[in-house]
């Protein structure tokens, strides 16, 4: 399932947050070699102290983390502006309440291959992107500014995302790091779903998150065929392409 965790809920998900900082260290410091601030097993920077929202993909019991991304409004202090200011003073300087910054987006390929052996890492990353697009839309966000390595652009394109590169910075990691603006809209969402053969919303609910002990979600039925049905006893398996394991389960509250 997918959770949008804001500062008032940090104390409810200490394990997920702990896993996310460890995962970020493994991905960004160890694998990509980015110059990020590492303390022990954690990759954590000053922006993590500013109460950002974390969008997390985890199992249904909120015990195992599969992926995460950090979200901050561009009206406040943002990492990308600070990082790119030296090389590209004008690159990442978009500021508005509906423009948000998404940073440190990554997936845990080990946890995913353990729990969902049929799901390939590229696809997993793209699914996280779709879920991110969904949650951004429900929260009135129309643009996400994000950083990525140049080769990721192809993956984004294949996933149906549309982005405009705003600038690049060298010397941050082994490869240049790009800064780009992603469109968030119903058009893009349906394009992404089509590209990935996803038929149902992945994240399916607004920012109100059920207690982890009692996951209660009311099944919403996006299928046209099912519109006449008032209830479904229990809907399991959210639409993914054949061969994928279920990403989230829908339980009736």
């Amino acid at each position: 399932m997918y959770l949008l965790i804001q500062a008032h809920q940090y104390d409810r998900y200490p394990d997920l947050l702990d896993q996310s900082f460890r995962l970020r260290k493994r991905i960004f410091a160890d694998q990509l070699g980015w110059s990020v601030s590492v303390v022990g097993d954690y990759e954590r920077d000053i922006y993590d102290d500013l109460n950002p929202a974390y969008f997390m993909w985890c199992d249904d019991d909120a015990l195992t983390l599969y992926g995460c991304v950090r979200l901050m409004p561009t009206t406040g202090p943002t990492l990308l502006y600070d990082v790119f200011r030296s090389t590209f003073p004008n690159a990442c300087d978009l500021v508005a309440p509906s423009i948000w910054e998404g940073t440190r987006m990554c997936i845990d390929d080990v946890a995913i291959s353990h729990d969902m052996p049929d799901l390939k890492p590229e696809r997993a990353f793209c699914l996280l992107l779709v879920a991110l697009c969904e949650v951004a839309m429900t929260n009135g966000i129309d643009t996400l500014v994000s950083n990525y390595e140049p080769h990721m652009r192809r993956l984004y394109r294949r996933a149906g995302a549309e982005l405009e590169e705003l600038g690049r910075a060298d010397g941050y990691g082994r490869l240049p790091v790009c800064c780009g603006a992603f469109e968030v809209s119903a058009r893009i969402l349906s394009k992404m779903r089509a590209a990935l053969h996803v038929t149902q919303p992945l994240s399916g609910y607004r920012q109100s998150i059920p207690e982890p002990s009692t996951p209660t979600r009311v099944a919403r039925l996006p299928f046209v065929d099912h519109r006449h049905q008032l209830y479904l006893e229990s809907v399991k398996v959210v639409g993914t392409a054949k061969g994928d394991k279920p990403l989230s389960q829908w339980k009736q509250g």
């Binding site: 500021v95 643009t143 549309e162 405009e164 603006a181």
Partner: peptide, 17 residues
């Protein structure tokens, strides 16, 4: 030579500023 969405985003940001 930008996408329409990008132009709207720049204008929105300018308007906010």
């Amino acid at each position: 030579n930008l996408s329409q969405h990008t132009v709207k985003t720049y204008l929105k940001s300018a308007r906010y500023k």
